[in-house]
């Protein structure tokens, strides 16, 4: 059976039922492709067994880059490239470099992290997403299960979904 083509969809109305259902479906040995929700459901990533996002590390590294670039730029311009006496202050006057250093740290951390988020989640303006069920951005949670990864055990999957509280169980195929 071809991968990523034939799916069984469990439709859930309530986020707490969904959380429980994810646990039940996974413990019955069925592999879940992904769950699509109209809003963030707390704890869903844990029951799906996702690893914690490493985006905070990206933010930290980009922030460090921002601090470094900001201080290098200021020392280069104020002390090495064209030193000027301003109010009798030291050329490499660190305290006055703190505000710009801070702002550029925040700027690069924010922009860098968001860029990594966009790339890792494949978000781009010209992308046409594959929508399993239009209601997944409105009021329903959609659990998609790829038949190819579950040896085509369609009847068993539907049974598990129904018993775990899905309000509808549908089939969906993509060309």
């Amino acid at each position: 059976m071809e991968r990523d083509k034939n799916f069984v969809l469990g439709v859930f109305d309530d986020e707490d039922v969904l959380l429980n259902a994810v646990k039940e479906v996974r413990s019955s040995g069925v592999k879940i492709h992904e769950v699509y929700s109209p809003f963030p459901v707390h704890g869903l990533d844990e029951v799906l067994g996702y690893r914690r996002s490493r985006l905070p590390i990206a933010a930290f590294l980009f922030g460090m880059l921002g601090t470094t670039l900001a201080l290098l730029m200021q020392f280069y311009m104020m002390k090495w490239d064209w030193p000027m006496i301003i109010g009798g202050k030291d050329f490499g006057n660190f305290p006055t470099m703190v505000p710009v250093g801070f702002e550029l740290t925040v700027l690069l951390a924010a922009l860098g992290m968001v860029a990594v988020f966009m790339v890792s989640s494949d978000l781009k303006p010209y992308k046409i997403p594959r929508i399993f069920d239009l209601r997944s951005t409105d009021d329903k949670h959609i659990m998609a299960i790829d038949l190819a990864y579950n040896d085509g055990a369609e009847d068993k999957i539907k049974e598990v979904l129904k018993s775990s509280g899905a309000s509808e169980v549908n089939n969906k195929s993509f060309e």
Binding site: L44, Y50, M113, L123, K124, P129, S136, T137
Partner: peptide
């Protein structure tokens, strides 16, 4: 941006929101 509401994307979205909030507060 081709958003589809996948649980993995929501997880990252929440992380991004939290870190951006943490950056925006001192900012």
């Amino acid at each position: 941006f081709g958003w589809d509401g996948a649980a993995k994307t929501w997880m990252r979205y929440e992380t991004v929101s939290l870190i951006l909030a943490g950056l925006a507060t001192p900012l």
